[in-house]
């Protein structure tokens, strides 16, 4: 049950034990919480920055990493332009890579 990888090793059992331990810890913490919250009352309605959250709002996948994407905007824009969707460009890159491979293979 132990996978040796040169310097380190990895055993899923250890991880499973760790995960069990974390779950136990979480359960312990949760059971120490306040007991007076009840299901079905207004106590469990979600809030969004102090306002009651309207029904049906969903932070879609599109908006999750907005900041990250904005920060990398120049790189990502360039990459999107690179994936132009034109078959000629696909073939061009293939030929360019072929040239590169030829140069590497021949000149080495």
């Amino acid at each position: 049950m132990r996978l040796l990888t040169g310097e380190g090793f990895w055993s899923p059992l250890v991880w499973l034990a760790l995960a069990a331990g974390v779950a136990l810890l979480a359960w312990a913490l949760r059971s120490r919480g306040r007991q007076d919250y009840k299901r079905g009352t207004e106590q469990e309605t979600p809030f969004l920055s102090g306002e009651p959250m309207p029904e049906g709002v969903h932070v879609g996948g599109q908006h999750m990493y907005w900041g990250f994407v904005e920060a990398l905007r120049p790189v990502i824009d360039r990459l999107r332009a690179f994936h132009s969707g034109v078959v000629s460009d696909y073939v061009t890159w293939l030929v360019v890579m072929l040239a590169v491979v030829f140069l590497v293979v021949m000149l080495s």
């Binding site: 999107r80 994936h83 969707g85």
Partner: peptide, 10 residues
Amino acid sequence: DVRKIRELRG
């Protein structure tokens, strides 16, 4: 035209 057939891009 290949330049117009590029719905699959990005």
